[in-house]
Each structure stands twice: as C-alpha cells, then as structure tokens.
Computed example of a mutant assay.
Amino acid sequence: MESKIWLITGASKGFGKVWAEAALKRGDKVAATARNTEKLKELVSEYGDAVLPVTLDVDNREDCFSAVEKVVSHFGKLDILINNAGYGHFGYVEEISEAEARQQIETNVFGSLWMIQAVLPIMRDQKAGHILQVSSIGGVMAFPSLSIYHASKWAVEGICESLNQEVAQFGIKTTLIEPAAYATDWATTSASHSKPLEAYSALRNAMLENSKNMSFGNPEATADAILKLADAENPPLRLFLGSLPLMMIEPAYNKRLETWKEWKEVSENAQ
C-alpha cells in the first residue's frame, strides 16, 4: 500500500499526537501542526523527515491556507486532513461572556472551516482525499455547562453533513469523529471556564460528584479505529469512539422521536 500523507491539526498532544504517531509508525508521512512547534520535537526526533512540523493558529484563515500550501509543496500531495485543533469551554449559558463565546466559535467552528476550505481545491484536483473532522458525543447531544462548546460541535456536524453531499462527486470522503470522555487534558489544562455564578452552584456540585464515577477511555486505544477509517474504501459519515456514545445516544434519540410523535397532530396542523 502506498504511504499516505496526513495533515493533523493540534498534533502536539492528546488525540492529535496519538493519531500522528499511529500514522508514522506504519510508514505514512505527517504534517503535524501546533501553535508552538517546539512541542513537536519529540515526534520529529523519533520519525525524522517523515514529520513536517508546521506552526499554525487555526483562528487565522490566511495561516490555514499557507499551512496547506506548505504541506503540498513539501510532500507533493495530501490524502487526509484531521481537523483536531480545538478546545472545550465550560460555563452555564448565563455565565458565558461575549469574548468567551466568540473565541469558542472562532477556534472550533471557523478554524475547522478554514482548514476544510484550504484543502478542498487540492483534493478536488487529486480527485481523492478524506476529511476527518473531530466532533464529539457533544455534537449530537448536550449536557449542562457546555452549551457554547456544544454549539461549536453541532455547527461542525452541520457543515460536514452538507460538505459530504457536496464533495462526494470529486472523490472526497468526509467523516465526523465523535468521541465520548477520554483521559486527555481536554477537560483540565486545555479547557477554559467562565466565572461561576452562585445560582448554579447546586447543579455544578452535583455534576462534579457525578463525574467522579465517569469511565474515561484510553486515547491510545483510538489509533486503530483512525487507521481503519483512513484505509476504508467507503468510510462512514459518522463514527463514535468508545463504548459509551451509543449507550447514551440511543435513549436520547428515542426520546426525541417520542416527543415529535406526541406532538405530531400539532405539527401536521401547522402545515
């Protein structure tokens, strides 16, 4: 099998690093991006010229296009984009500031959109390519304290569902990756938080208590799934990662169907 060229944003830690290492271990080549490429030294030291470290802030649209040009100029093509850069913001709706809301959407939504727009001309010309967009179980259902994060992930879900229908004609594939809770630093050092309001302290404390019993997945265990996606002739539009998502999503979706059916007469009379 011919080696693939990957572009992975946010590759210095967490899922991005795990997936970069998985691709490199099997002989593929990876353009690994980070705001600070010093954090990519370990990858470069171990895999040498198979790694192209690229400084990138996905909030900057021009940087996104320049990064893609650099990758294609260096490797000659681009097979796979993994839109992984992003973060989670914690805060109840009433607590979220305008700046916090704008920054969450700027990075998670616009950052992903700019990268997709940057790779599409390349992949169209190649008549091949695969865009893997990191979403979340929070892209298909919602929980208290993560509303603006959910907004960002529901947005990329919509973008990619439309994208999939638009670019299949060019041989470009699209997959939304939907993990549940994993033992990364997503909810700790990589997260941001709104200033808490006392009114929500009871709910906040209850959620903190519940989180103590949460089962976290092993990020390393996701590597094989990503490689299978990359090699699939007909990859799915959506893929859960972990054992929890389907268990959580199925009752949530059944509840939606029940509600729509319960109000079916009201809906139809509105025709």
Rank of each mutant, 00 (worst) to 15 (best):
S112H: 03
E62L: 08
D63N: 10
A128I: 00
I122Q: 13
V167T: 03
P235W: 00
Y253M: 12
I105C: 04
V30D: 04
A206M: 06
L208W: 02
E2S: 13
G10P: 07
A11P: 07
M207W: 04
E262K: 15
K25R: 15
D59T: 11
F170N: 06
A191T: 05
I80A: 06
V266L: 07
V266E: 01
S97I: 00
H130C: 12
A252V: 02
G14N: 09
E42M: 00
G139C: 05
W19H: 14
G14Y: 13
S243T: 11
E209D: 00
E262Q: 14
I116L: 01
E62S: 13
K228V: 12
L246S: 12
K255T: 14
R35D: 05
F240W: 07
P219G: 13
R35A: 06
E98N: 11
S194H: 03
N218V: 07
V167K: 06
E233Q: 15
G139W: 07
L113N: 03
V51N: 04
V54R: 07
Q103W: 04
T37I: 14
E265L: 10
D59K: 15
M214F: 11
G16I: 10
P179S: 01
W263L: 12
V58K: 07
G86V: 07
Y149H: 09
S267I: 07
I82Y: 14
H193Q: 08
K25N: 14
V44H: 09
K77R: 15
L176S: 09
D57R: 10
E166Q: 08
L208N: 00
K17D: 14
A252G: 00
A128Q: 11
N83F: 00
R61C: 08
L78R: 04
G48W: 01
R26E: 14
T55G: 13
N269G: 11
N83W: 05
G158M: 04
I131A: 09
A34W: 08
L56E: 06
N218H: 08
R61L: 04
S112P: 04
C160V: 07
V266R: 02
T175W: 11
